[in-house]
């Protein structure tokens, strides 16, 4: 079975089904939640969602990289990156599948 890709539309549908708001409002709320998350991270603030995981903003220092094609050295300037650290609950929920098959 090939993996499916879910998008905002699928999340809105779930909110619509579970919470009992209109489709339009469900979509707007999914958008608002994502905007709140991304705005917070863009300010450099970490986000911790219990039982799901944490999004952590890290500051990377300057280092010398290399163009793998030409072998040429290029400086990589200091930058901020974001990492996702899944919670143990998320990790274990992903490993126990409903059909009981080991993967």
């Amino acid at each position: 079975m090939t993996p499916k890709t879910l998008t905002r539309a699928d999340l809105s549908e779930v909110v619509y089904q579970k919470v009992g708001l209109s489709r339009t409002e469900s979509a707007a709320l999914v958008e608002l939640v994502l905007r709140e998350l991304t705005d917070t991270l863009a300010r450099g603030e970490n986000v911790k969602l219990s039982s799901f995981g944490s999004f952590i903003v890290r500051n990377k220092g300057r280092r010398i990289g290399r163009n793998p094609k030409t072998g040429e050295e290029v400086p990589i300037e200091p930058r901020r990156v974001m990492v996702f650290k899944p919670s143990n609950i998320l990790k274990s929920r992903i490993n126990d599948r409903a059909d009981g098959k080991k993967r």
Binding site: R8, R93, R103
Partner: peptide
């Protein structure tokens, strides 16, 4: 858990 992706 189903092995699917979520792209946002």
């Amino acid at each position: 858990a189903r092995g699917d992706r979520v792209e946002l």
